[in-house]
Structure formats: C-alpha cells, structure tokens
Nucleic acid binder design. Structure first.
Lengths: 140, 140
DNA sequence: CTAAACCTTTCCATTAGTGTGAAGGTCAAG
DNA sequence: CTTGACCTTCACACTAATGGAAAGGTTTAG
C-alpha cells in the first residue's frame, strides 16, 4: 500500500511516516516510480511505534527495541531476528532504562492515587483549602 | 541557598533550574539583590523533577502532579495542599496517562526480556544470524 | 489531453528541553 | 578600589518530534 493508505489506516500523518523512515524505524520499499510501498505488517508496526512514543520513548530507543519486538510476535520460527552481541547489549541497556521508568512511574502513580483518594474522602465539596507552598509564591 | 549551590547539590545546571522556574515547577524567592534563593526542600524537589523528566514526563505534566507529590511526603498534617475541583480533575487525567504509560512499558518490557532470554539460551556465542527483516532494507 | 488526487523532496516553523555566550550587577578578598 | 567568583537577563543554537508549504513528478478519471 502507498503512504496515504497507511496514514489513513493508522491515523498517523504521512509526514510522520516519512520521518519514521528517516530515523530508521520504518523501512518501506520503493516501487519503480519512487513511491513508498508498505506491506500489511507496517500497520501494526506503526501502531506500536506510536504507542511507544506516547509512552515517552525516543525514536532512538525504539530503533533498538523494535526489531526484537517484531520477532517476539512471530514465535513461529524460533528467533529469525539477526542479532550480534552489540545489539544484545543495547537491548539490555534499553531494558534497564525501561525498568527504571516503570519504577518511577509506579512510585508516583501510587502517590497520586493515594492523594486523590484522600481528597475524595475529605474534601467532598470544594473545601477552599489553605496552607502555604513549600518554596514560595502560590503554585500556578 | 543560591542557585550555584543548589546546582552543585543536585547535579542540575543553573540554566535548567532557571528553566524549571520559568515553566512553573520550581519557585525560589528572591533576595534583595535579585538573586534566587532556595530552601532545603528544593533539593528533593529538583531531584524528583529530574526523575520524572527522565521517565519521560513533560514539565507540563510535572507541574500538575508535583504539588500533590509534595503534599504526599508531608503526611504529618493530613492534606495541607490546596486543590480545587479543576486541579483534582487534571490530576486524575495525569494518573490515567501515567497508568497507560506503565502498561505499555510493562508489555514491552516483558517482550524484550523474553527475547533476550531466548537469545541467551540459544545463541551462547555469536551465531552470525540470518533471515530477512519484515519490511525491507537491512536494519541499521 | 487535462485536471484532480496522489506522490516525491526540500525547506522552514514550532515546542520542549538543554547548552552556551554576552553584557552587566553584586560581593568578598586582597 | 580592583579582581574574581558569583549572580542576573537576554539571546542564539541545537536536537527531537511534529506541522506545513512549495515545486514538481505520476496516475487516474473524464
């Protein structure tokens, strides 16, 4: 399929699909006239890219991580994805970085959650609160 | 303490501390000469900001979420942090966004993990792999 | 054949986060 | 009082991700 169709099917602007190619996370081939041509799997791939970007990863991280996620889906044929030790190391680093992110997010998720719950229990209405901020100046 | 000292204690460049003030997530007061003055709690605050930025949050999200995380630490006095219904709503939205991020990251964390494990088991040495990529062109 | 709808590349713009340098004010030490 | 180490603001620049316009090629419909 051509870029417009992929854009429509994924909800991602053609401009971005070209950008993803430029940064090396999407690899269409070209038909004779120079048009980009995408296969069906590109749809999933683009959706996964969006998901990861929205989760805060950079395209660089995604570039290291995506080939392996592709392979993970097709467990049909063991691992068909080529890796050398360097790739594997990069992968391990990305994994650590992701784990750290999860940690931070979970910690803060819990804090926010309990904070919200406290307020839902106490300040049922709009309890025109009080008390000064820790630094100076009113927040906002 | 002045900006240089805070920078040293947190490992965050003065330039950034000023930027964090500009975007409203750090609120020093000013002494007579115009110098920014920070209290002890600013150290923790800055470290938390860094943590959240590195986890992929934007300063905008942090701005909504930080006051509540401050309050969470000082559970001494119930909730001393002023909130109106609008703040609370923003907080709930941020919470959802964070939860979604965690989900995505966890899913991919698992995939990467099992991929790495598969390779550690199979390709003990450097098994000069094979097989074509799903789209076109060799990866990298 | 022509017009519309797509595609191409190139370039410029914007936002967020960050780095850096200029021009100048403040302050403590000598 | 001068020097050096800090501080201030202002401004320009870079990367990443994104938006968009310009100028031109291709394809399809009429």
């Amino acid at each position: 399929m051509k870029i417009g169709e992929l854009a429509e099917k994924t909800g991602v602007a053609p401009r971005l699909l070209r950008y993803y190619e430029e940064v090396g996370i999407l690899h269409p081939f070209r038909s004779g006239n120079g048009y980009r041509t995408y296969g069906e799997p590109a749809i999933d791939r683009v959706l996964q890219i969006r998901e990861l970007l929205e989760a805060g990863l950079t395209t660089e991280m995604i570039r290291e991580v995506l080939p392996c996620l592709d392979a993970a889906k097709e467990e049909t044929e063991a691992q068909a994805c080529p890796v050398d030790d360097k790739d594997l190391d990069g992968l391990r680093r990305q994994l650590i970085s992701i784990e750290r992110r999860i940690d931070v997010l979970q910690r803060n998720q819990r804090a926010i959650k309990s904070y919200i719950r406290a307020w839902e229990k106490a300040g049922v209405a709009s309890p025109a609160a009080s008390a000064g901020p820790q630094e100076a100046e009113v927040r906002r």
